[in-house]
């Protein structure tokens, strides 16, 4: 395939290397997610929660940030996003297998509860939308210290029904804080469809009610997300306040390893969801634009597989937590 001269310009001003890197990160997230689900089905990982279908939204947002400088307050579907922020596949295999070296929590929390100070990823718990307020406080701190740092906080569309969501957006808008509220709307909160979650068509319709900018973007289109997120991040960084950015995603897997979405979603709905796989879509676009040549996609896939194999080997060998360590870190060690 001939490389199209115009392709990079059409692709959000990103270089071919950046585009390939974005695709590679989407594939890495997908394959790691699949591996963790396999470990669960093998009975080796007691619990798994999937972000499959959200990869384009997460890579688009991640690439709009200054990684190593900006902050992320994630939620449980953000496997690909925390990888983009600098965490490693091994980190999450250690978590899935409940190993002591899990950097998220030392195997104290269920997998999917991300956090890493080294990568400016704030620790997260299970209650939905509590993290919204933490991001607002983080942004308040950036403003107080006159730093040009931006924080992104993510949540599902179901989380936007919580009180903490409302309180956080209201506060952030009042003080024009440098925060981007990312809603990864995959149309289901476990089994409850969006129509039973809100009476508006889009979560971002509410942005005006808070007095902040809002945007809805096709979360299956990584470059569209990248453009929208870049705009939101720039708005935040330049002191013009928060943005409510809603990315319309698909949920390819059930809510968690303890759920079976075939019990509440129709076969047609699930088939349509699979037809909107963002990883397949970006590969097709990059091949059509000549950014990925014959064999490139396979090579990327193999490189990611090798990385995951090596990571799993390490995670397999890693020790479980020492029982005595269960009593540590309740308070600062004296």
């Amino acid at each position: 395939m001939v490389v199209s001269e115009s392709a990079p310009a059409e692709m959000a001003g990103l270089s071919q290397d950046q585009l390939r890197s974005m695709y590679r990160d989407m594939v890495l997230g997908r394959l790691l997610d699949e591996r963790i689900l396999v470990l669960n089905r093998q009975g080796r990982a007691p619990f798994a929660i999937s972000g499959q279908g959200h990869e384009a939204a997460q890579v688009g947002v991640g690439y709009a940030l200054r990684r190593g400088h900006d902050w992320l307050v994630p939620y449980y579907r953000d496997l690909t996003l925390v990888l983009v922020m600098g965490m490693e596949p091994k980190d999450h295999l250690l978590a899935a297998l409940g190993k002591a070296a899990d950097p998220n929590s030392g195997a104290r929390q269920m997998p999917g509860h991300y956090g890493s100070r080294a990568h400016n990823i704030v620790t997260t718990g299970s209650p939905v939308a509590t993290q919204i307020l933490h991001a607002v406080g983080v942004a308040q701190s950036f403003r107080y210290r006159k730093e040009d740092t931006v924080v992104v906080v993510s949540v599902g569309e179901g989380g936007s029904s919580e009180g903490d969501w409302h309180e956080g957006l209201n506060w952030a808008a009042i003080y024009h804080l440098p925060v981007v509220f990312l809603v990864e709307n995959n149309a289901y909160a476990i089994s409850v469809p969006q129509s039973r979650q809100m009476a508006v068509a889009h979560v971002a319709d509410r942005a005006a009610g808070y007095g902040m900018a809002g945007a809805v973007v096709d979360g299956g289109d990584v470059l569209a997300v990248y453009r929208a997120a870049s705009e939101a991040v720039e708005r935040a960084r330049s002191g013009q306040g928060p943005t409510l950015l809603e990315a319309l995603c698909v949920r390819l897997q059930s809510h968690s390893s303890d759920d079976d979405q075939r019990r509440y979603r129709t076969a047609e709905d699930l088939a349509d969801t699979r037809a909107h796989d963002p990883v397949v879509r970006f590969r097709t676009e990059l091949e059509a634009a000549g950014v990925l040549l014959d064999g490139d996609a396979d090579e990327i896939r193999q490189e990611c597989q090798r990385l995951i194999e090596a990571a799993q080997e390490e995670a397999d060998q890693a020790p479980v937590p020492d029982a005595a360590s269960a009593l540590m870190h309740v308070y600062a060690e004296a």
């Binding site: 933490h134 607002v136 983080v138 701190s141």
Partner: peptide, 12 residues
């Protein structure tokens, strides 16, 4: 929000 935002400040 008072407590949650304060938590965010502490984290930062």
């Amino acid at each position: 929000a008072i407590v949650g935002v304060a938590i965010g400040c502490a984290l930062a």
